[in-house]
Structure formats: C-alpha cells, structure tokens
Design a protein around this nucleic acid. Structure first.
Length: 925
DNA sequence: ATGCGCTATACGTCTTTGGTAGGC
DNA sequence: TGCCTACCTTTGACGTATAGCGCA
C-alpha cells in the first residue's frame, strides 16, 4: 500500500508540473491539444482509456506482475501501477500524456532536478529502480495496451462464475443446435423436396429403392451422382427456414454444406432408405476462455463472412492439410494395396477441403466446362492461382498440393485404367475425377471475394453428413456414414481426422431422424478421453436427449428382421423376450466402442481416462487393488484397468458410511498428516515426543471393511463414544437398540423423565477458524421412544396452551391500551378542538353520531365498565347494527338495559341496545 | 504438432469436539 | 445457582484441475 500512496501524492495538482506539461504540449502543437482543449480531450481520453483499462483490469486480474496495468483513480486520472512502474519506466517515466492530464508520465517530474527535489520520492526506494530519461524532449508514452499487442500476456484464469456461465452458454447452445438439427431433419422429410430430387434422379439409380440387401457399396453410384450434381458453395448470410433453404439449394444445385448434406438425406429417404441427418454440434466451449474452434467460432457461426479474420488461424488449416496431404501421399504410394480405395476416398475429401484455400475465381461460365477439366488443366489452373496468391500460407499449400499431386501421379494413371474396368469405383478412386470435382467446385463458388481462409473453413467442412442403415453390412446391419459433400462413404474412422484438420473438435455428433436425435459421437470419435472433458455432464445431457432418442428410435429403430433377431437371441442366450431393435443394436455397438478404446500413448491421458489408469496419476486417496492385470505400458509405466483403482479412506470416513475396518487389517496406504498449528507452537520437546504413527493418516480400502458393529444398548443405557455422545452421521451410525430423536428440547424431556440419553452430533461447522460440533436432538434407547414422544407431545400441548394464554392476555392488554388511548384522544379533541360544548364532555363518553361499532372477537367482561364499550362507539365504524333505529342524538348517554340485551349462543355475541336505538355487539369469551 | 515437465493459480476438500458474558 | 443464548470472528493446509510456457 505504501507503494501506491507515493504516486498518488505525486498526482496532486502541481502547478510547476502542469505548466511544464503545458509547455510540452504547446511545443508539440500538431500532436497535442492546446491547454484550452484539454478539458474536452481529457474527458474523452479519460473515458476511452478508462474503458480500455477497465477491460484490461478485468482480463488481467491475475498475474498482475506480468502485465502493465493502469487503474482509474478516484479523481479520474490514471496512474501506472506502482508495482510495475520500475519495469515500464524506461518508456514512460518522464513522458507526458498527450492529453496533458495527470497521467503515468506525471509521476516523474519534467526534469531530473525536480525529480530529486521531491524528498518523498527519494524516500520511496521502491521507485528508484527505473531508468529515468532526463532529456527535455517530449516523449510519447506507449501504453502498449492495445489488445493485439498485449494479448500474449493477458492471462486470466477462469473463476467459478466464468465456468458456470460458460457451461450455461454451452448448454443453451447445445439445445439450440439440437433444435436446428431437428428442423433440418424435418425439412429432409418434405415430400416436395423428396419428389423433386427423385425427378432429377436418373432412372437406373431409382432401382436402389428396391434393393433389399443394402450394403454401403450399393450407395456409391447414388452418392456419386448426387455429389456431381449438388455442390457446396460459400454460403451467404441469408437466414431462411430450413425447408426454404433446402428448396433453394435444390433449385440452384448448390448450397451450404448443411443444405447439401440435408438434401442427400432427403434423397436417401425418398428412395425409402432409412437415413439420418448427422451433424457435428460445434457448440461453444464448455470451459471459459477457450477459443471456439474451426468453422464456427462460438455461438455465432462463421457461415457468414462476417467473422473477424483475426479469429481465424490461417496457418493451421493449411498445416493440417499439408500434413494430411503428406499422409495421403504416403498412402498413395501404396497404390496397389487392398485398402487403397478408402484412402483415395479420403483424399477426395481432403482435397475438396483444401480447395478453397486457393483463391476462388468468379467464373460461373466455366462451371460446366470445368466439370470436364483434366489433370493438366487443373494443375495449370492451380499454378496460375498460386501465382496470384500472395500469402505465405497459400504458397505453402500450393507447394504441398503439388507434392501430393505428383505423389499420386502414378496412381492416377493406373486408376484411370481401373476406372474404365470398374465403373463403380471410378468415381471414388480416379484422381482425374477428383481433380474434376475440385475444379467444378472451385468454379462454382460464389463470386464474393472473401477470405480464402474463411472459405477453406466452410466449403467441404465435414460437419454434416448422412447415415444410412445398411442391413447387409454386418451380421446385424449397420449405420453407414455417407458424406455426400465430400464424397465419402463408410468413412467413419476418418471423420475425426477430418474434423480435426478443420480445427474443430468432435464433441457432439448427433444423428437426427423422425424429429428425434441420438448421440452417435462414439462412432466417430476414436479418442474419447480427449473430448470427454469438453462435453457437458452426462447427467444433464442424457435426460435432455432421452425423449429425442425415443423419437429417433421410433422412426429408424424398427425391429430387426426376424432372421437376425433369432441369431442374436440365440447368441445372447437370453430367455427373456428381448427383441433387438436397430437402436438397441446400435447402442451395443457404441458401448462396445466405449469399452474398447485403444490405449493412449501419452501419460497425461491416463489422468482422467475412464478405462485405463497408471499408478503415477492416482490421487492421494486412490490405490490400485488388485494391482493387475497390466494392459500395456505407456512410457514404461504399466497401464491398469480403471476398475482396479480403489478409493481409500480413514476409519472415521468409513464410519460415516456405516462401515468399519475389519480387525487385524493394516492400512493399505499411509499419508503424512499436516502439522497442526498448535503443534508448531509447542516446544521442540513435544515435537520429539510425537511418534510417527500419530502423524500418519491411515487409509483403508473397501475390501478391508465390514458393516459397522456398534455395541448394543443394554438396560436402557445408550452406548456412547469417549466424548459421551453419539456421532450420528447417518442412521447406520446409531448403536443398535437406539433411536435418534430430533425434536427440540428433547433432552429436557428425557432429563425430566430420567431417561438415559446422549447428545447426537450430526456434523461440524466452522466458525472463527475452528470447528465446532453440531448437535441435533438426542439418542435414546428404542424402548423409551414412545414414552418420550408422548411426554413431548403433552409438554408441547401444555406449552402451546400456555403460549396461547399468554398471547391472549397480552392481546387483551393491548386492546385495553389501544381503546384507552382512543378515548383519551377523543376526549381531548372534544375539549380543545370542538367549539360547541368543550366543557360538557362527559367522562362516560357520548354518542356523537349515529354510528356504532361492533366489537367482535374482543373480550368483554360483565364486570368490565360499560363505559369503555360506549366510548368505542364514538369511533368511526361502518358496521351499523340497525340503521333504522339509529338516529342522530346529541348529548345523550346510552343506557343498556338488561331487558334489551340479547345473546346469540352460536356466535357468542351479546347484543346490547339503548332505547335510542343504538346497539352494540360484544363477544363473550 | 505433440508430449512432457514445470510453474502458477483458482478452487474444492478436509479438518474436526470453545469460552465467556449476560439474561432469565 | 444453573441454564440458555449470543457473541467472538470469519481457518488454512493441502490436493486437484487447469492453463501457459519452454523444451525435446
């Protein structure tokens, strides 16, 4: 605090300094405002800088030492954080703020002498570290606070509030994306769109609807046709209904990746195939401050070119692509391998993804021509474009693309030959086709000159695809991944890499059908442990999806055909009437995937891996039991199943769960107990006296426990611990034969009845830095429970009666006080305010008007002075008992004769009447 | 690009059994 | 005299999760 006080003092209005500052300002007339303008400018400057600083402060609440920080002062001026000034003094110590206002620069005087004159400054040795510029030239302070320049050091850790907010946003975003997926799915069912698609379909492809034993191979011609006829374009920011969007895409034969994928689903459904629309829910991060990834940064999707370029990592996609290209090149070298087909398919995808990085041309006329372009044309085209491209990343990409193309050149020749012989595979494996597609899509992109990087993120982004149920794929049938946008079929194992290459994480993959949805992330995510922590808690997510799962299952699940059901039933050897549905079989498939995840190769992944563990990353209260089997090794550390990880606790902790350590069990783990503060204060001799055993926390595992065996209550005596109480952590902790009575003052009842009891301690609370036991009720032997409850009930009744009596007495007293005060007031009013008959105010009160008051519920005693009741009558009241009898009478004193009284036994109301017609009701208590 | 080790920081968990004055 | 209540004063050590950074 002392450091802060010194500069504050310096900021006191100092004429000499201000004058100097003004001179400096005038010397640099172009840059600085004249003093007369200082006011306005100062305000503006203050405001602007204040905003920035507030933001900076917000961002940099932690690690202040690393960041230059300013704080707005009470008087509106800013001052360099004293903690930082020595570090920044070389730049700003002797500078003036352009505004001429008291600022960072003001802390140092305009000359060295002035600086030294200030004794306080000399005294404050903390301020002597900086190098002070002593020349008289004005120096401009560079705050270095612009977001761009200091982002690297602006580190702020997420607070609990940040985390909560991020989670809420994450959840809401998830729900929104789910809803959107359902809308798209609904649009896919649109009969008009489906009919239109069918009308475009060549006749030979219509046969697909008649295929009974569908395999993924059967889909190739269809998807190929679709892929060649519907293209992804750089989407604009139009916001239309999904149905309209699909119709529009259908009409134009081009649309966003989402629309194209949805159209493919519509087409598949039109052909009576069971198809889902699958979407990667690229949701805002669950953790705060994480940069939203890939093609959608945060909630606000970047499907529009409005995204800030700064947010995009221009290099990364290219680097990723270069990597994938290299990979492809390597894979391509295995041109004759059996698996080459899939590899090539992947290449198609990769290149289609790569494509947008090359600057797009506005060449719609070339669209049709381009579809027939050959390799050479493409290469020349690419080369031309590469020349136009100025960015380093683009150049790198082009080089990598060339390398990839050259690496696949041999293959392409062979593929051409093959394609001729094998038309089915031609569209997937032939590089010429691939090239053709690339060219087509390049040409078909919109004429908008947008960032190529943005385009690269969008076009071909593998975020949407279809899943088709192929009954012949497995023994049980299988959902097959069909990415019509990138022309990939059955490439589920490639999706993760594709998505990763687009800097997007595969946290939620949801399949939509029949207005429902199902989480199928497991099918596409090979490294679950990497995304698990980025997904919302399943206790929230599962119930959210549950109704949608049912809808989806109802639409697609259908019972598997009988033959397979029987096979399954026999295999599972279950006698119950379990009939596997597509949905249940898929569930099994996904669960199997969950249980057969490959071992991670890095150690840290085992820290919170749901399946595997290594001893190194166990927590303090975890042990391996049994220590085996070893599933593998990671960096020399044996890997164990997570099921071997057991939680160990102290005896006391187990006691709370109603368990106790078996006799003759040794602690499975011992921890060093932290030294208590009291012990620190103790003498050394005491420390020597402490044995090791005392300082150790002994931990036991579940397998060393048995149910709690507390001593029975005997002869009405409650067994208690060494403190004379019973620790009631739960019902399990009660000694047999005892009960826990929690009603208040139970101990007093027990004491009165001379029943043995023990205070029930239910926990601890921390106050004043100490922990105090919290007691709630008593523990007594079971046989006394009824007696105690009865006695308590009696006592409670008696207590309530007493309380009621006390309340009534008090109420009566208060009414009396109230009425007396009213009477007194009225009397005073009559005497001193009313001019009519001030001296005739009778003590007994008068009937001033024809109004009467009905007192209900108030006590009336026969012995009570009737005058009180009469006096009450003077009060304003609207409850006239009998208006016809009431006539205005002055100077009349009511007389209530017994013969005019009437008593209503039902309401206990006694009605008294005066001869004048006035009546009053009183309640008999 | 990735994994690893280290560091810093926010936050959660565990810890764990009053003393005294004053009113009734 | 004995019982009840309010007040005092706001722990802190440690572990875990997480993020950043540099290095290999």
């Amino acid at each position: 605090m002392r450091r802060r006080s010194a500069p504050q003092r310096k900021r006191q209005p100092s004429t000499s300094e201000d004058q100097t500052g003004a001179q400096q300002n005038s010397e640099d007339g172009n840059k600085f405002q004249s003093p007369s303008d200082n006011g306005a400018l100062t305000e503006i400057s203050r405001e602007a800088v204040g905003k920035l600083l507030r933001r900076a402060n917000k961002v940099g609440t932690s690690r202040r030492k690393k960041t230059a920080e300013f704080e707005p002062e009470q008087n509106g001026t800013q001052v360099l954080d004293p903690m930082l000034q020595p570090k920044t003094s070389e730049v700003g110590h002797c500078s003036r703020n352009p505004s001429g206002n008291a600022s960072a620069g003001e802390k140092c005087s305009s000359s060295g002498e002035d600086h030294l004159d200030n004794k306080e400054e000399l005294d404050d040795s903390d301020w002597e570290d900086g190098v002070v510029a002593r020349d008289d030239h004005p120096v401009t302070i560079e705050l270095n606070m612009t977001p761009n320049s200091t982002v690297k050091k602006q580190v702020r850790r997420a607070s609990a509030e940040d985390k909560e907010l991020a989670e809420l946003v994450h959840k809401v975003h998830l729900l929104c994306l789910l809803a959107r997926g359902r809308l798209i799915d609904n649009a896919c069912d649109d009969p008009l769109i489906q009919a239109s698609l069918l009308s475009l379909l060549p006749a030979h492809l219509l046969q697909l609807s008649n295929v009974e034993k569908l395999t993924s191979k059967d889909l190739y011609p269809l998807i190929s046709w679709f892929h060649n006829n519907f293209h992804v374009k750089n989407s604009t920011s139009r916001e239309t209904s999904p149905c309209f969007g699909l119709a529009s895409a259908l009409e134009l034969h081009e649309g966003s990746p989402e629309e194209i994928a949805a159209l493919s689903v519509a087409l598949l459904r039109a052909l009576n195939l069971t198809a889902r629309f699958v979407s990667v829910l690229n949701v805002s991060p669950l953790k705060p401050f994480q940069v939203a990834s890939g093609s959608s940064c945060g909630i606000f999707k970047t499907s529009t070119p409005m995204i800030s370029k700064r947010k995009l990592d221009f290099k990364s996609p290219q680097e990723a692509l270069s990597c994938s290209e290299r990979e492809n090149a390597c894979e391509s070298s295995l041109a004759h391998s059996q698996k080459s087909k899939k590899c090539r398919v992947t290449k198609h995808m990769d290149q289609s993804r790569d494509r947008p990085i090359v600057e797009v041309r506005n060449d719609s006329a070339a669209k049709s021509k381009a579809s027939e372009t050959q390799d050479s044309n493409l290469e020349s085209c690419l080369t031309d474009k590469s020349r136009k491209s100025k960015r380093k990343g683009d150049l790198e990409f082009d080089m990598q693309l060339e390398m990839a193309l050259s690496a696949t050149a041999v293959e392409s020749e062979e593929s051409k030959n093959k394609s001729a012989a094998n038309p089915e595979s031609s569209c997937f494996s032939c590089p010429s086709k691939r090239v053709k597609r690339v060219t087509v899509e390049e040409s078909s992109t919109s004429s908008q000159v947008i960032s190529t990087a943005i385009g690269s993120m969008k076009v071909g982004s593998p975020l949407y695809w279809a899943e088709v149920y192929c009954s012949e794929e497995n023994l049980t049938g299988k959902w097959v991944h069909v990415d019509a946008v990138n022309l990939i079929i059955d490439g589920e194992d490639k999706v993760e890499a594709m998505v990763a290459a687009c800097k997007t994480s595969l946290r939620y993959v949801v399949a939509f059908a029949g207005q429902g949805a199902k989480d199928v992330t497991r099918r596409y995510c090979m490294k679950w442990y990497k995304i698990a922590s980025h997904r919302v808690n399943s206790t929230w997510w599962d119930p959210v999806l549950a109704p949608l799962r049912d809808l989806e299952s109802g639409a697609t699940g259908g019972v598997n055909d009988l033959r397979k059901s029987q096979i399954i039933s026999k295999q599972s050897d279950t006698r119950d009437s379990f009939v596997p549905t597509r949905s249940s079989i898929e569930d099994i498939e996904l669960e199997t995937r969950a249980l057969t995840e490959p071992l991670p190769t890095n150690q840290q992944a085992y820290k919170s891996h749901p399946l595997y563990a290594i001893e190194k990353w166990l927590t303090r209260y975890q042990v391996l039991h049994p220590k085996g089997p070893i599933l593998g090794f990671c960096s020399g550390h044996p890997v164990y199943p997570r099921t071997c990880v057991q939680t160990v606790k102290t005896k006391e902790r187990w006691l709370r769960e109603g368990l106790q350590v078996k006799p003759n069990e040794y602690p499975v783990k011992e921890l060093q107990r932290s030294i208590k503060p009291q012990k620190v204060q103790d003498s050394e001799a005491d420390d020597y006296g402490c044995s090791d055993s005392v300082d150790k926390i002994k931990l036991y595992g579940k397998w060393q426990l048995e149910p709690l065996n507390l001593p029975h209550a005997v002869n009405g005596i409650v067994p208690r611990n060494e403190r004379g109480q019973v620790d009631v952590w739960s019902e399990k902790c009660l000694p047999p034969g005892t009960v826990h009575l929690r009603f208040p003052k139970a101990f007093s009842v027990a004491k009165r009845l001379e029943i043995d009891y023990a205070p029930a301690m239910v926990g601890f609370e921390f106050k004043n830095g100490r922990s105090y036991p919290v007691f709630d009720g008593i523990v007594v032997c079971s046989e006394f429970k009824d007696v105690l409850l009865e006695a308590y009930a009696e006592e409670e009744e008696r207590r309530q009666a007493e309380e009621k009596k006390r309340d009534e007495t008090q109420a009566l007293s208060r009414w009396y006080q109230l009425l007396s005060s009213i009477v007194t007031r009225q009397r005073l009013n009559n005497r001193y305010i009313s001019n009519s008959l001030p001296s005739e105010m009778p003590t007994g009160g008068q009937c001033m008007n024809n109004e009467s008051i009905t007192i209900v519920g108030e006590s009336y005693d026969k012995n009570h002075n009737v005058r009180h009741q009469q006096q009450v009558e003077q009060c304003d009241s609207t409850s006239v008992v009998d208006a016809s009898l009431s006539t205005p009478v002055k100077d009349h004193e009511h007389v209530f004769l017994k013969e005019f009284e009437s008593f209503d036994s039902e309401t206990s109301l006694l009605t008294k009447r005066c001869q004048c017609g006035f009546s009053v009701q009183v309640e008999e208590l």
